[in-house]
Design a protein around this nucleic acid. Structure first.
Lengths: 251, 251
DNA sequence: ATAGTAATGTTGATTTTTGTTGAATTGCCA
DNA sequence: TGGCAATTCAACAAAAATCAACATTACTAT
């Protein structure tokens, strides 16, 4: 354990990124020494090395939620555009969590006077900033990877509201089992939203039609005849029965 | 991973949209380098590229709240950096609404294991996405220009939590009247947060020391001796008495 | 004192990054 | 649609950073 380690760590963590040169100036040693001293720190993961500088491992560069939002980005943007065609100015809508929902929220910034209820803090903050909208955030404590809430209070808020549409999502679409997600709480929220909504809009990109790594096992509530299915590719005939009484929209 | 990545992301996320030229000016490198450095970021979805500029995947550029965030941006960024020095990993903090709070939230992404309670949906969704944080959104119905809530339920949530710090703001600082804001509900939230907090951190940029167009008239609750005042310029002696028992921090 | 050891600085070859140039592309407006 | 300006891209040259090997210094234990 070198005598410079503590100081080096402190400096880098404080500033996020510090160049090797600057560190050598601060600690009063040569740049070569900085490299030597930092190597064990980098090896044991206390610091990260890039060409020309050391960066703190504590700095948050790539976040899980945002990373996930950008999987199949084009597909999701296209789907969001199609969903927004259904919604009119002045409509009310419940929006669940899920990566496609984030894009729909972005796209809905072009609509005015919306009434929105959602359990996703991201969706809520995106739409709340549009003047004229009326946005309710359902729930208090937020899940740390996507900022969604599944509190008791979330249900209270959702159940109080009567909306024209509800936007739902799924992690996997199975021709026989239907729309599946990973967690029961997601199903519960979806049910609560459906119970007080007019037509449902199920938004799933084409990747959800193929087998997943982590298999989801919980079934979303069944949709009503006339509900929408929005996706980015025309689904194969295998799904004809599952989608038989849904209105299918493809961009 | 380049040494500019962090800075580039921060700049773009805070401003929403930044032209390649301006970025090259800010970072002091050529525009070609900006393109090179940003490519991997765009590939992994941390940023979005349009002709001539980079845009944040997180936020809308031209919205009132974000526009206001961009007033005195450098000052607010500097103040946020100073505030974050006070907060340690694992601390708990209550954060009010206000444009400086948004920057503090951005800067707090470098801290881990935070417990946060806030009535701003923007702050909540920013910090909820950091793995390991525990974020509570106080309130349900969101005010449409800044996504803040002042519901009865917001107070319930705030009053349940005991935090190490509370971050407060003000619209005007008057040497005799103290810290002023425009709306009573903001004072109420500040009082509730203060009642359950350790030390307060009052963050005000220098523009708040000068007379405003719209004069705020409501006084924030008085601070305790030892509370922090963080601002970007050393305040004039006129304020010596008001700040007499506060710990003043200037970047 | 002094030989041995560890830490640091220095040098030069190698690698990576950056800036510059000019050609190709894009967006825009008449 | 065509032309113009701005932006982007690709390739090369220049600059900066890295690494390894060796020289130097500081410190320790005999």
């Amino acid at each position: 354990m070198s005598k410079y380690e503590t100081m080096l760590l402190q400096t880098v963590d404080m500033r996020g990124t510090v160049s090797v040169q600057e560190l050598s100036r601060i600690l009063g040693v040569s740049d070569q020494t900085i490299r030597r001293v930092s190597r064990p720190l980098v090896d044991r993961g206390a610091l990260q090395k890039v060409h020309g500088a050391l960066v703190s491992t504590k700095s948050a560069a790539d976040l899980p939620y945002l990373a996930r939002m950008n999987l199949n980005r084009e597909a999701k943007v296209a789907i969001a555009g199609e969903v927004v065609k259904i919604i009119q100015d002045g409509d009310s809508i419940a929006i669940d969590t899920g990566s496609t929902s984030g894009f729909v929220a972005q796209a809905l910034r072009n609509r005015r006077e919306l009434t929105v209820v959602t359990n996703s803090a991201y969706v809520a903050s995106t739409l709340a900033m549009i003047p004229g909208n009326n946005v309710s955030m359902a729930g208090t404590q937020l899940r740390d990877h996507d900022g969604a809430s599944f509190d008791r209070s979330a249900f209270d808020v959702i159940e109080r509201m009567q909306v024209d549409y509800v936007l739902l999502s799924a992690s996997l679409v199975d021709a026989r089992k239907g729309f599946l997600v990973h967690e029961q709480c997601e199903v519960d929220i979806a049910s609560a939203m459906l119970a007080n909504a007019g037509r449902a809009i199920m938004a799933v990109d084409h990747s959800k039609f193929e087998p997943q790594m982590r298999k989801p096992a919980l079934r979303q509530p069944t949709l009503k005849p006339g509900d929408f299915l929005v996706t980015d590719r025309v689904p194969s005939v295998d799904f004809a029965e599952l989608f038989s009484n849904l209105e299918i929209r493809v961009p």
